[in-house]
Each structure stands twice: as C-alpha cells, then as structure tokens.
Simulated scan of single mutants.
Amino acid sequence: MTRSDLVELLAERFGQLTQRDADAAVKTILDAMSDALVRGHRIEIRGFGSFSINRRPPRLGRNPRTGESVHIPERRVPHFKPGKALREAVGAQPVDSDERTPDA
C-alpha cells in the first residue's frame, strides 16, 4: 500500500472527506510522526505497534573496491516493533504467492 492508496481508501471510507482533505490528513499524521522521531520520541499506536529510534555505534568498515578501512560514524535509525494484535493478524493469514514481495 502506498501513500496515495491510503488517501484513496480514506476518501472512499469517509464520504465527507474529499481527496484533498484525506491527503492533508495523511500528510499531517506522517509529518507529526516524523517530527516526533527526529526529536527522539517514541510513538506507540495500541494494537498496531511502536516506532522508536535505535542507535548504531561507530564502527570500522571496508571499501569493497580497494579493501581500505573506512570509519563509519554513529547513526540513529528508525525502528518499528509490531504490536501483538498486528503480529497475530499477520501470522493468521496464509501467504498468497502473488502478494509476496521480492525480498520475502
């Protein structure tokens, strides 16, 4: 599902919302979530999951072309942990071979 799919679904489900209103609602929610994560806050949506920031410590890597050692600085990366209800709902559904992603 893409952002535009989500906007279309919201506009269909709630007849009083126009496409523009649904798009503004989705943008507002996603912007608020992004801003909270940038500030280091944790986001918890009951029944769905939680978003948080994980810290990746600095490390020494290698340039694959030259074999030269390269310093990789510390990074903060977003992390999603699904909630129990979402894990159970996904786990209860059989996998349809047409809907599998290439990396699955």
Rank of each mutant, 00 (worst) to 15 (best):
N63A: 07
F80G: 02
P94G: 00
H79S: 12
T2L: 10
D103L: 15
L30E: 08
V26G: 08
M1K: 04
I43P: 02
R76C: 08
V77M: 07
R75F: 09
P94M: 01
P73Q: 05
L9V: 14
I45T: 07
A25D: 08
D5R: 04
G83D: 00
R46D: 02
P73R: 09
I43W: 03
T28H: 14
P78V: 07
T66P: 03
P82F: 06
G40Q: 07
D23S: 15
E99G: 14
A25Y: 09
V7R: 05
T28R: 13
D23P: 08
F80T: 00
I53T: 15
T101Y: 15
L6P: 10
S34R: 15
L86C: 04
R56F: 13
L86N: 05
D98E: 14
K84N: 09
G40Y: 09
F51E: 03
L6Q: 04
E68D: 13
A36T: 06
E8R: 12
V38S: 06
A25T: 13
S34M: 11
L9K: 13
R75N: 02
R20A: 15
H71C: 03
R87W: 00
R75T: 12
R46W: 07
T28V: 13
L86H: 05
N63Q: 07
P64I: 01
F51C: 02
Q16R: 15
I45W: 12
G83I: 10
P94Y: 00
H41K: 13
G83V: 04
I29A: 15
S4T: 12
E99R: 15
L9P: 05
K81Q: 09
V38T: 01
V95H: 06
V70T: 06
R46G: 00
I53H: 09
D21L: 13
V77K: 13
H41D: 15
F14E: 13
S34Y: 12
N54M: 11
V7S: 04
P64T: 02
G83M: 03
S69P: 14
E74P: 11
M1R: 06
A92R: 08
S50D: 08
P78Q: 05
V70D: 03
D23L: 09
G47F: 00
R46K: 02
G47I: 00
P94T: 00
